[in-house]
């Protein structure tokens, strides 16, 4: 097994042992409950909307918690003196963090397919979820660099939810119909994430999809650069600094 696979496997084992998978499955169960009790037979639009909520919040939270655990247990230091590159370590963590999102998507999709009606290309949605989850995992790592503990992380994620995700949801569910507000939401990365996910379920202008993909991929590159650059500083910082 090469080192990247060892790291990835280690991340997945720890997601399970630290109950992060369980937390993700619990949230998935809530989404399935919502789908079940909705008085709608065709859930083709609703499922991607729920997936958007799941991925944007859970991916940020799970990677943040995983980083905080490693910081608290100082295992991050022992990783720094192992014969692995920073890229291997970060990519293994980021890719492992996509798995709970994919699991959540699969559970919701299978339930909808078996019990309700859903007309979505699963593999297209899987690609969209992987990209959005990757982006939000990067954001989660970056947020962890600037938070002192778990409570602080939760506060920052809540703030981010209000600033980045809530406006997009309000427009998506037609709660806010103001055109300037709706157009303004395009500056938010969560809007791009929503467009990429919803593009698998309904017809969206091609330019919107292309713009959203470029926005997300570009943002991923910028975030990855920042995450990579600041990593040593974060890893060596003592707890509470």
């Amino acid at each position: 097994m090469n080192r990247f696979n060892v790291l990835l496997n280690g991340e997945l084992i720890r997601l399970r042992r630290y109950n992060l998978f369980a937390a993700s499955l619990f949230v998935s169960a809530i989404w399935v409950g919502i789908i079940h009790f909705l008085n709608v037979e065709d859930v083709t639009t609703i499922v991607p909307q729920l997936i958007f909520l799941d991925v944007t919040t859970m991916a940020t939270l799970l990677v943040g918690v995983s980083f905080i655990y490693e910081k608290d247990e100082s295992t991050i230091r022992t990783m720094l003196v192992a014969p692995i590159s920073k890229n291997q370590y970060l990519l293994a963590k980021l890719i492992a963090n996509i798995i709970p999102s994919i699991l959540s998507l699969t559970i919701m999709y299978l339930y909808s397919k078996l019990i309700k009606t859903i007309e979505i290309n699963y593999f297209l949605l899987l690609g969209a979820v992987a990209l959005v989850s990757f982006f939000h995992s990067l954001m989660g790592i970056l947020l962890t660099y600037f938070t002192k503990d778990f409570t602080n992380l939760i506060m920052v994620i809540m703030l981010l939810f209000i600033i980045l995700i809530l406006p997009v949801i309000l427009v998506e569910f037609n709660i806010i119909t103001n055109e300037i507000f709706a157009k303004g939401s395009y500056i938010l990365p969560s809007k791009a994430a929503l467009m990429v996910i919803m593009g698998t379920a309904r017809i969206i202008d091609r330019w919107e999809i292309i713009f959203s993909l470029i926005y997300l991929i570009g943002s991923c590159l910028v975030l990855y650069y920042l995450v990579h650059r600041q990593f040593d500083l974060y890893a060596l910082r003592e707890r509470g600094e």
């Binding site: 080192r3 084992i13 042992r17 247990e73 295992t75 022992t78 014969p83 692995i84």
Partner: peptide, 30 residues
């Protein structure tokens, strides 16, 4: 780091994994 071993003063283990699982994980990196 193939040639270097570092013993930190503070514990540096995954607390929810067994000692054997911790060592097996790191062993596979060398």
């Amino acid at each position: 780091f193939e040639e270097v071993g570092v013993g930190f003063e503070m514990p540096v283990h995954f607390s929810k994994l067994t000692a054997e699982e911790n060592l097996n994980f790191f062993m596979k990196l060398y």
